[in-house]
Simulated assay, not measured.
Amino acid sequence: MIIENVEAYWLRCPIEDVKQHRSDYGLLTHFDMALIVVTTEEGLQGFGEAKAAVGSSGVCASIVSCVEQELKPVLIGQDAKNITRIWEQLYSGSRDHYALARGRKFPILGRRGLTISAISGVDMALWDLKGKSLDVPVVELLGGACREQMPAYASGGWADVDGIGEQLSGYVSKGFDGVKMRVGVMDSTVAKSVARVKAAREVLGPDIKIMADAHGTYSVPEAKQFCRGVEDFDLYWFEEPISPDNPMGTAEVRASTSIPIAAGESEYTCFDVRDLINHRAIDVIQPDAAIIGGISEAMRVGHLAQAWQLELAPHCWGSAFSFMAGVTVAFASPSATVIEFSLGGNPMIYELINEKMEVEKGMIKAPGSTGLGVTPNWDFVKEYTQRV
Rank of each mutant, 00 (worst) to 15 (best):
A255Q: 15
F271R: 09
G170N: 01
T337Y: 03
T189P: 05
E252Y: 13
N377S: 07
P241V: 04
D245S: 14
S243T: 14
D232G: 10
S92R: 12
R274C: 04
A305L: 09
S322Q: 11
E267Y: 14
A154E: 01
R22Q: 11
R111C: 03
M299N: 02
R102S: 02
G58Y: 08
R85D: 01
A307C: 11
D272A: 15
W317D: 00
C66V: 10
V138W: 05
V374N: 03
Q167L: 07
W158C: 06
R111M: 10
M211H: 07
D272W: 12
M357G: 02
A61S: 12
N246P: 04
V161T: 12
Y350P: 00
I291Q: 06
K105S: 10
A199R: 04
S173D: 09
S117P: 02
L310R: 14
A53W: 05
W127Y: 13
G184P: 08
R111F: 08
D275S: 15
D234M: 15
N346G: 06
V388G: 05
Y268A: 05
S120L: 11
G46Q: 09
K81H: 09
I339F: 08
L114C: 01
D96E: 10
D17P: 03
I259M: 11
F323V: 12
W158P: 00
C66N: 08
A99G: 03
Q386Y: 09
G46E: 06
I208Q: 05
A214S: 10
F331V: 03
I339P: 01
W127S: 00
I277D: 01
K382H: 11
Y25H: 13
V273D: 00
V18M: 04
W378T: 09
V388D: 01
V329F: 02
D160A: 11
I2V: 13
Q78C: 11
T189D: 06
H303Y: 08
A199K: 12
S117Q: 06
K361R: 14
L142E: 01
K356S: 03
S369A: 14
Q78W: 09
G294I: 01
D207K: 15
E49C: 08
M357H: 14
A320M: 06
S169C: 08
K209T: 00
Y236K: 14
A251S: 14
N82M: 09
